[in-house]
Simulated assay, not measured.
Amino acid sequence: MIEAETLTVTDTIAAGRSPHDVAVDPSTRTAFVPNADDGTVSVIDLETLTVTDTLRVGKQPYGATVDPNNHTAYVVNVADDSVSVIER
């Protein structure tokens, strides 16, 4: 976590191996972090700053985005040319 005004690191959250991106659903205060070397996505509760789930996705997940209208996360898996859809 980074303090916006001072750009100071205030906390860290352990995810999987080689985290590559962060996608945030602002209304549910949930973050999705693709872990490229694990083939997983860490689901993080931003209120408690804890990993609430680790989901297996495709090979080498690299990027993510969230549709805030339906709270669905999309994760790009570069090694197998696929997209994983995470509905919460």
Results as ranks from 00 to 15, higher is better:
Ala4Arg: 11
Glu5Gln: 15
Glu5Gly: 15
Glu5Asp: 15
Glu5Met: 15
Thr6Tyr: 00
Val9Ile: 13
Asp11Glu: 12
Thr12Pro: 10
Thr12Met: 12
Ala14Lys: 14
Ala15Glu: 10
Gly16Asn: 04
Arg17Trp: 14
Ser18Arg: 03
Pro19Cys: 09
His20Pro: 07
Asp21Arg: 06
Asp21His: 11
Asp21Gly: 08
Ala23Asp: 05
Pro26Asp: 10
Thr30Arg: 00
Phe32Trp: 11
Asp37Leu: 10
Asp38Asn: 15
Gly39Val: 05
Thr40His: 08
Val41Glu: 04
Val43Trp: 01
Ile44Ser: 01
Asp45His: 05
Asp45Ala: 08
Glu47Phe: 04
Glu47Ile: 09
Thr48Tyr: 03
Val51Lys: 04
Thr52Asn: 09
Thr54Glu: 11
Leu55Ala: 13
Val57Pro: 00
Gly58Trp: 01
Tyr62His: 12
Tyr62Met: 07
Gly63Val: 08
Gly63Asp: 14
Ala64Gly: 09
Ala64Val: 09
Ala64Phe: 03
Thr65Trp: 04
Thr65Ser: 02
Val66His: 00
Asp67Val: 08
Asn69Cys: 08
Asn69Thr: 10
Ala73Tyr: 02
Tyr74Arg: 09
Tyr74Val: 14
Val75Trp: 04
Val75Asp: 07
Asn77Val: 11
Ser82Val: 02
Val83Thr: 06
Val83Glu: 08
